[in-house]
Design a protein around this nucleic acid. Sequence first.
DNA 1: CTCAGTGTTCAGTG
DNA 2: TCACTGAACACTGA
Length: 264
Amino acid sequence: MPELPEVETARRLVERASRGRRITAVFTAPDRLVFDGVREAVLRAALVGATVVGSARRGKHFWLELDRRPFPCFHLGMTGGFHFYRGETGRPRFLVLELELEHGLRIGYSDPRRLGRIRLREDPPGEAPIAALGFDPVLDLPGVAAFAALVRARRRPIKALLLDQGFAAGVGNWIADEVLFQARVAPTRSAHGLSDAEIARLRRALGRIVGHAVSVSADDARFPRSWLFHVRWGRKPGARCQGHPVQFTTVGGRTTAWVPALQH
DNA sequence: CTCAGTGTTCAGTG
DNA sequence: TCACTGAACACTGA
């Protein structure tokens, strides 16, 4: 489920496994889609022999910092994920990239639907596509006044704005729905027409939800029972949240779960 | 067998 | 410029 909290959790796991270690071997699957134009030989030359010194994230993108540039950058799409194992027998299905580290641990990136992307960048935050991202709710959440100005500059439905990575980097479908639910704002409302109080509630909900999800390593079993999250999957007819019916519609081109009795 | 889906980008339209 | 729609990417699982 790679939205911001899942990506941050993946980043921490990958960094913990690799920081201070040299990359001794690289395996790549022949996948021109995920590698987004990066040739295998170029990727291999960039990675083999380099030592991982850290990592960073912005929105749903994260990258490994090496002892030399360029750095490998990852976007997990909808189905990308990391696996940790030793030996070739532990390889996951749909493996796209595998890094073998000097202590023998292998980090495999697999992506069944191949919507993720792996790129090389000299300066990840200063170059496309990361440079075009909006604020990150964990790193950069604007103050109330700045947040209100950003929101009111647009006339799109507020849910479509929340999903726009150029507005808030890292917000995906479930976070957008959860933020609107907890802020008690209907997803179809025009961003331009929201009141000061509604915008303040949206900002607080965004910070609180993303902060909590990150603090529990994106483990949804540890999300509070009151969250809409637990009933939004599967479009179950008759689903209820906090005693009220859940409505499923499409907003901003995405499946949207909301509670009309509580969101106005 | 059919269809929706945790994401993004691009072409086309208004 | 803004905003919206649909398609494309490719596969799983209900």
